[in-house]
Design a protein around this nucleic acid. Structure first.
Length: 875
RNA sequence: GCCGGGGUGGCGAAAUCGGUAGACGCAAGGGACUUAAAAUCCCUCGGCCGUCCGGCCAUGCGGGUUCGACCCCCGCCCCCGGCACCA
């Protein structure tokens, strides 16, 4: 073998071998254990970035390990290929989105191959293929039939920059998740998916997802925002109008002293008195103006304000009427857009009541902490804050003395009997708006006929293929609307002239089911033109081969960024449940375990005059252009704008993929942020070189001769080998402590190196140890280890060789270091036999001179013995 | 404000059914090899005191429980992320 480690040569060689051997091809349905390992598929932006490297390195280690542990492993890859950047490239550089996307995919696929990922490429998916989205269109028509997809006119989130609608999940702090520009509301006729129909199941399912990080589950719970309460009717005095409110605290009903309604509430016009009309109109106009001018990130903590409508509401139970206010803090988009105000028990209502001198009426009394069973009085005149906790009802007529919990039920029952209200559950979650006024996406398969109205495109006429010859100007509006040949069509029902829907799907739809397509590839995924029309057999079978999907699903390990905690991960869960209910698959949840990997970060440099600086623009802490000292910025996520990115191509060119993989797994645990630093990469490269030389040395040693155990040093190395196999196998098991697994392999390599440098080093012991290193390192550095495995004389490739086992007996320590404490402080350490009994440990510790010294003749009061660990003598 | 995660050497990090704090790596210092450099190899490396043996301090801060606390409990501070007038 070569004396020097040349990653370029080695990596090219093994990548070619794997390709020729179709090494990672996998069939479904075989007996035995299956493992579906999936990383979130990339958007084909042009080049991979370090975040991809880390994501796919983590997944590849898991896939390679599981494969060698005897699982049938599915570890596929594809492309989230529809989206805006392709369209923007078309507008700016006059490249067709399809061509731009295809070129990017080809380049990025080569990059992923260079990383040595163990991917069965024959299952590759590109969501912009009509063969992919034709099924999506068919599924959509099935959803329309079931009422899961529907069209509705209403206010939707609109991003001017992206010239399209956004779903609620895609608005972050009032700004577009993609471009960061402010989002405004715009009334439009749009398609929605009824995700709210699955709100309870999506919520309950979170409790079953033990393999998910708690924070992702919490984020989804918060997003769904389920709250139980009651809907209560408040008739308006001297009017036919009825204001309905939602409250989670029906037990405070008798403390209502006014109502607050949202400025946009549809009943505002109707109930406002003539005298108050100008004031209400002025208030609403001022608010509308303020909201239009508000920038994202503006302080939302505005003061509570309101205006009296001149109208009064009649609370249930014939109590005196209460005034109705229009208030700035009431949201039209939540509950009913109106709230019953209980200032004694809600801080917002309290603030409002104090400001406008409205009465405060305590109806829930707090328990007295000093006298169990007793209650504390609340005095409206002296209260400084609302009492929002639970307590005991008072001043509530027949409900007095009930606890809050019992009172809630009793009041709701009472309301329901009288027809004044009922129990209700509301959600923060809204239905998913899926229409997008963009070109590069899946056409929504619907036509509009003047005679027959809206029609979904029948299966026999699918797919509706995205036309290629469309002028992309960026002028706004759906580009497809300007494509006459596309728009004009015939009604599938009456055959008369009709117009096609010109919006396309939100691209989050494609990523909501791609993992199912991997599990059951479309046999005609290469087809084009008329060959794409559904055959009767295909329609009978449905989108998937049920056996294949049932075999592989659910994904055993999903890996990706935390940024999709609510977006993609919620949509995919929803889609899975819908497809299950449509009869296409049998699982309830798509992803059994989820690993959210941390970001790849790097230090930044900044010059007062020249802004962000590249590393090479800084020498000795100074900006190379102006010579003025540059400021070391924070360590932040790699981004082009901050000039702190590392290009994977350059990295691989210099160190090789194995080093790139190793460092991105070694520098931090997978779920935590990783700080990139060049010296650390060097360290990993040096380590791989050391392993190379270790093998080079071992292959020159005479083959194992006698059955020697190598004496003391040899047994120690063998012990370390078995301990390391045990540790690496465990660390890479369920929790994926890949960084400590690598550290353990490094320790074994250090031990092997020391052993070989020592006087007694023999091949008989060193060789198995070094082979062990090659074995254990294989998932992390697949190319290097294949080369070394071959050099060690093994003809069969390592990727197909079973993962090594370990011998508990050989892993056992002969002696341990016994820590001797006096009064809890370490005073001595002794080497004792590992199997020594408690009495022997105690005797050894007490006999130790240092222990004797610290005892200073005093009699031990107590001796604590922890077998295998320590003895603590207490005086 | 609420929820989640975190705070350990010069740096990235280890170690949590409570039992040797700092594995592994980086940086730094010293040495070997070399005409020299690179590469490689060896040694030192939390702070303070001490001649070695050793001692004291140290896991964000302050208390507590315990023979013993990075770990458990109580009260705080700071950082990161998510949500945020959700009735």
């Amino acid at each position: 073998m070569d004396a020097r480690y040349e990653p370029k040569v080695v990596e090219a060689k093994w990548q070619a071998r794997w390709r020729e051997a179709a090494a990672f091809r996998v069939a479904g349905g075989q007996p035995g254990k299956k493992f579906y390992c999936l990383e979130m598929f990339p958007y084909p932006s042009g080049r991979i970035h370090m975040g991809h490297v880390r994501n796919y390195a983590i997944g590849d280690v898991i896939a390679r390990l599981r494969r060698r542990q005897g699982f049938h492993v599915l570890h596929p890859m594809g492309w989230d290929a529809f989206g805006m950047p392709a369209e923007n490239a078309a507008i700016e550089r006059h490249i067709h989105p399809a061509k731009w996307t295809r070129t990017n995919i080809a380049y990025m696929r080569a990059q992923l191959d260079q990383l040595g990922l163990s991917i069965p490429w024959e299952r590759e998916v590109a969501t912009c293929d009509p063969a992919y989205y034709r099924w999506e269109q068919l599924l959509f028509t099935q959803m329309v039939e079931r009422g899961i997809a529907y069209k509705r006119y209403g206010e939707v989130n609109w991003c001017d920059t992206c010239a399209t609608v956004l779903a609620n999940e895609q608005v972050e702090e009032g700004a577009c998740w993609r471009c960061g520009k402010p989002v405004r509301l715009k009334p439009l006729d749009q398609w929605f998916l009824k995700i709210t129909a699955y709100a309870d199941e999506l919520l309950a399912g979170l409790d079953t997802l033990d393999g998910w990080p708690e924070r992702v589950r919490t984020m989804q719970r918060n997003w769904i925002g389920r709250s139980e309460g009651a809907r209560i009717r408040f008739p308006v005095a001297d009017s036919a109008a009825v204001i309905e409110v939602f409250t989670t605290r029906p037990d405070t009903l008798f403390g209502v002293t006014f109502l607050s309604i949202a400025p946009e509430h549809p009943l505002v016009e109707e109930i406002t008195s003539a005298a108050q009309r100008p004031a209400v109109a002025a208030f609403r106009e001022r608010l509308a103006r303020q909201r239009a001018e508000a920038r994202p990130g503006d302080e939302v903590e505005v003061e509570k304000e309101g205006v009296f409508t001149g109208a009064y509401a009649l609370p249930p139970g014939g109590r005196e009427q209460v005034p109705i206010f229009v208030a700035n803090f009431v949201l039209m988009g939540y509950g009913t857009g109106a709230v019953m105000a209980v200032p004694a028990h809600d801080q917002r209502d309290f603030d409002f009541a104090r400001k406008y001198h409205l009465p405060i009426r305590p109806v829930i009394l707090p328990p007295d902490p000093d006298h169990p069973g007793a209650l504390l009085p609340l005095d409206p005149a002296t209260m400084t804050a609302a009492y929002e906790e639970e307590g005991v009802m008072a001043a509530s007529g027949e409900f007095d003395n009930l606890s809050s919990a019992a009172g809630r039920q009793a009041v709701v029952r009472w309301l329901a009997e009288r027809g004044d209200g009922r129990a209700e559950v509301t959600y923060r979650l809204r239905d998913w708006g899926i229409s997008r006024q963009r070109y590069w996406g899946t056409p929504i398969p619907v036509v509009y006929c003047a005679t027959c109205g809206m029609q979904t495109v029948p299966a026999a006429e699918l797919p509706v293929v995205l036309p290629e010859d469309v002028a992309l100007t960026g002028a706004g509006g759906s580009p497809l609307a300007a494509c006459e040949g596309f728009v004009h069509t015939l009604c599938p029902k009456c055959g008369g002239p009709a117009r096609r829907e010109t919006d396309t799907f939100d691209t989050f739809i494609e990523s909501s089911w791609y993992f199912l397509r991997y599990a059951s590839p479309d046999p005609r995924r290469e087809a084009t033109g008329d060959a794409l029309r559904f055959t009767p057999e295909e329609l009978a079978r449905g989108p998937f081969d049920r056996a294949a999907v049932d075999y592989w699903m659910a994904v055993d390990q999903y890996i990706g960024g935390i940024e999709h905690a609510v977006l993609h991960l919620l949509y995919a869960r929803f889609f899975t449940k819908v497809l299950r209910d449509l009869g296409h698959l049998g699982v309830d949840e798509p992803f059994a375990r989820l690993l959210t990997q941390g970001m790849v970060c790097k230090e930044t440099w900044r010059c007062a005059d020249h802004g962000w600086l590249l590393p090479e623009e800084v020498t000795e802490g100074r900006c190379v252009r102006c010579g003025v000292s540059a400021e070391r910025g924070r360590v932040t996520k790699m981004s082009k704008s901050k000039k702190n990115v590392v290009d994977p191509d350059a990295l691989i060119d210099r160190y090789g993929a194995d080093t790139a993989r190793l460092f991105s797994l070694f520098a931090a645990p997978p779920e935590r942020d990783l700080e990139w630093n060049e010296e650390g990469v060097e360290g990993c490269y040096r380590f791989l070189g050391r392993v190379w030389r270790l093998v080079a040395q071992v292959v020159t040693l005479p083959a194992a001769t006698a059955d020697t155990d190598g004496g003391e040093a040899g047994r120690a190395l063998t012990r370390r080998l078995h301990q390391t196999i045990r540790k690496v196998t465990r660390d890479c098991g369920e929790e994926f402590h890949l960084n400590t697994a690598i550290a353990a392999i490094m320790e074994l390599a250090n031990a092997a190196q020391s052993y070989l440098a020592g006087p007694a080093g023999t091949g008989a012991v060193a060789r198995p140890a070094v082979e062990g290193i090659v074995h254990l390192l294989n998932p992390f550095a697949p190319h290097l280890t294949e080369e070394l495995w071959a050099a060690l004389g093994h003809p069969a490739p390592l990727y197909a060789t079973p993962w090594p086992g370990f011998d508990e007996e050989l892993a056992k320590e002969e002696t341990i270091e016994l820590v001797c404490q006096v009064n809890g402080k370490v005073r001595s350490r002794l080497s004792v036999a590992a199997n020594a009994g408690q009495a022997a440990l105690e005797a050894a510790a007490l006999a130790d001179p240092m222990v004797q010294k610290w005892l200073a003749g005093k009699r031990p009061r107590k001796v604590i013995v922890v077998p295998g660990r320590l003895v603590n003598v207490v005086v």
